[in-house]
Simulated assay, not measured.
Amino acid sequence: MQHDLTIGGILVSPFLAYALIAFLALVALRVVFRWVRFGRFVANPPLAEAGIYICLLAIVVVLL
């Protein structure tokens, strides 16, 4: 179990670090999505990316 992070004397939940890791993974995946033209395969690309972000966040939380 992760303990709280201390940034500048302020305690920060480790969940925020997990959310940042998942966001950075999503940014990397967006490059791939643009290369594959992901928008052609889904009806609403922003909604699909939001769902992928939630899945990435769940994977990060489970693995870390």
Rank of each mutant, 00 (worst) to 15 (best):
L20G: 10
L56H: 05
D4E: 08
V42G: 01
A28T: 15
I59D: 00
L57H: 03
A25N: 02
L20Q: 13
F15P: 00
C55D: 02
I52N: 05
R40M: 10
F33A: 15
L5M: 04
F33G: 15
A19F: 08
A22Y: 14
I7S: 02
I54C: 04
A25S: 07
H3F: 04
Y18R: 12
I10E: 11
G9L: 03
F33L: 09
L20Y: 07
V36P: 14
P46V: 03
D4M: 10
V42T: 05
A17G: 06
L26M: 15
F23P: 00
L11K: 11
L47P: 00
A17L: 14
A58G: 09
F15L: 07
F38T: 10
G8L: 01
I10A: 11
V42H: 07
R30K: 11
I54F: 07
T6K: 01
I59C: 02
G9D: 05
L26I: 12
T6C: 02
V60F: 09
V62Y: 12
L20T: 10
A25M: 14
A43H: 12
C55M: 13
Y18E: 13
A22P: 13
L63Y: 05
A19W: 12
N44G: 01
V12T: 04
L16D: 14
L5Q: 02
I10L: 09
V61R: 10
H3W: 03
P45I: 07
G8K: 02
L24E: 10
A22M: 12
V31H: 13
P45R: 10
L11E: 04
L47Y: 07
V31G: 14
V36L: 15
A48T: 12
V27W: 01
L64E: 04
